[in-house]
Write a protein that binds this DNA or RNA. Structure first.
Lengths: 205, 205
DNA sequence: ACCATCGTGGTACGTTCGTATCACGAAGAA
DNA sequence: TTCTTCGTGATACGAACGTACCACGATGGT
């Protein structure tokens, strides 16, 4: 039975198990045995594909970042074929809000990694630090695009507004995560600022 | 030597040690023995004053919230005797940004607690969930006060702007914490939005 | 057909953690 | 004084963790 196995696929499956159990019980409470059980494999196998726990965590973070990218892309595709910049921005921001159970787990694990990264140099060096910067540039690009289409006033500082929206989204996301704020009200706050930036363009039916 | 001892004082000192070491190495890496060593007492004493680790964490969170209140109060007092609402709001927002080493530790530990609270019911029930709500009301009150003094346009939704500023502050704080954004630029973003809300009033020398 | 290697299981080891137990000196109450 | 309670130390215990070790069946190369 034990043929040659695709390592990458196996590693991904285990990483997915890691994210699942971390989303359920918190990353701090996850051990290798838990990951093994969740993935339905033996402890030895987790050791085999990731020699050490640190490597497992690192790979888990990578996997999480990838999944986030896919999530945003999927949400973007939902808004239609030729969405305006605003619809695209909305999709991007809403995708990073912990609305359903999956994205809640997502936010939780991501925040856990962020906390770990403050004290763990190996994690701090990961691209997870570079990704949000890229997101800010993308958002700023969309805003500039909207500006050139006269949807946004020329005086608006797009880079700064992009940073603001992202920071707000992150802050609101955390509030939603700890059940301090409802997803609905978080969306309302973001919509308000989009309305402000896209002055003159109104859209809530 | 062993006279009667003020329990509250002792507990506070131990809680301070907990926060210190958690700020240095991350809350996840803190054990009772570390706290004992940091406080300069024996492990037994930590056990004696807090029977269980959970109680220690709970008390630590309380202590942290209190210190945050004092921190904000102190920062408010700095702005002078009769500060305008804007100066007060600035003090409040800047106080919750991780600028110096102390407030960095502060943010880190606070965020760690937030992550734990998602999966730990005992922590989730703590006032730490209620505090930010109060902060939002205070901020909204200050904005309304400014509105009545004609420093803020009448059309502004103060509650919503308060929520926005707080969310932004939290999000920016995290960015600063993971060295993804400089404190200076975080301050700039906040200042921008204060300038927007306090339209017409300018103040940076 | 043989052998090296791969995938896998089981299990043991050393450490660390939170907690519990035993012991004892000092101080206030009687 | 005598005794009870308080504060403190040292140490032990059981569990859980990450990791290492050993064994073995299956497979592919030669």
């Amino acid at each position: 039975m034990p043929k040659r196995v695709d390592h990458a696929e196996r590693r991904t499956e285990i990483a997915k198990a890691l994210v699942r159990v971390a989303g359920r019980r918190g990353l701090h409470a996850v051990g290798m045995r838990d990951v093994a059980a969740e993935a339905g494999v033996s402890l030895r196998l987790v050791q085999y594909y990731f020699e050490t726990k640190e490597k497992l965590l690192l790979y888990g973070l990578q996997h999480l970042a990838e999944r986030f990218g896919e999530r945003v892309a999927a949400r973007s595709r939902t808004v239609g074929d030729n969405p305006g910049p605003r619809a695209m921005i909305e999709a991007l921001l809403m995708a990073s809000l912990p609305t359903d159970e999956e994205s809640r787990a997502f936010h939780l694990v991501y925040t856990s990694y962020a906390v770990l990264a403050v004290t763990d140099p190996a994690l701090a060096a990961q691209p997870f630090i570079r990704n949000p910067d890229a997101a800010e540039d993308v958002l700023a690009g969309l805003l500039r695009q909207a500006q050139e289409a006269d949807l946004v006033a020329p005086g608006v500082d797009v880079q700064l507004e992009a940073a603001s929206l992202l920071a707000m989204s992150a802050g609101l996301g955390t509030s939603v995560l700890v059940n301090q704020r409802s997803p609905r009200s978080a969306v309302a706050v973001l919509e308000h600022h989009l309305n402000r930036i896209f002055q003159g363009s109104d859209q809530d039916p």
